[in-house]
Amino acid sequence: MYIDQYTDEVKKHFLNPHNMGKIAKEDLKAGEALATGTVGNPKCGDLLTVYLRIKDNTIKEIKVETFGCASAIACSSVTSDLAKGRTLTEAKAITKKTAADALGGLPPIKMHCSNLAAEALHKAISNYEQGVETVTKEPVKKKAPTQKPAVKKTKAKVAAITGDMTLGEVVTEYPQTGQIMMQYGLHCIGCHVATWETVEQGAAAHGLPAEQINKMIEDMNKSIV
């Protein structure tokens, strides 16, 4: 990005971000819970963890750890400001758009890849509600198996993966296929810029010939049986 592509509000938050860091288990008082949510992928340049100290369904404290660009840091800061003191229901209503609007807008290319804080916030709340990644000191890397069935999805399950599905759909429905796509060189799938591309578009953008794309989709379908 060029510095003049960022608004003054982005610069303000980026230079002096609020609520940065982590909450330790030891900081909890009786009746409080600590929930965490991690999203992103350092390969794509953004990885962040949201820590929530929750009491009576209210966010008493929020901290964010961010590895990312100026816009990722600003989004972390503004999202944490918006969420602090809110009930969990209110916090769920905070979206990427809310964060971007509060910053006076983001460069379009940054809207999806760097604006992950709202997503991490939702993940931390969902983890809390499901009792995973909660009251732990460090973010747990392995997904607890209980998480999968509980993930709320409105989309109808499709029988198989096809080339015209978006990468976002595929990795949400069939997380296990991520590894396969990575093996075929689609390293960008962790990046939100690619979420709206179809599997075919994404593969073609990485120079995969048609037969390789078909083989990859075949492998992906095998993995979900």
Partner: peptide, 22 residues
Amino acid sequence: KLRAFSSLREGVIYDATEEVHH
């Protein structure tokens, strides 16, 4: 300043392949 609040640090070798499906 930036390292103080980074989610990456020494000793935390982040396995990206596990997080691609966020």
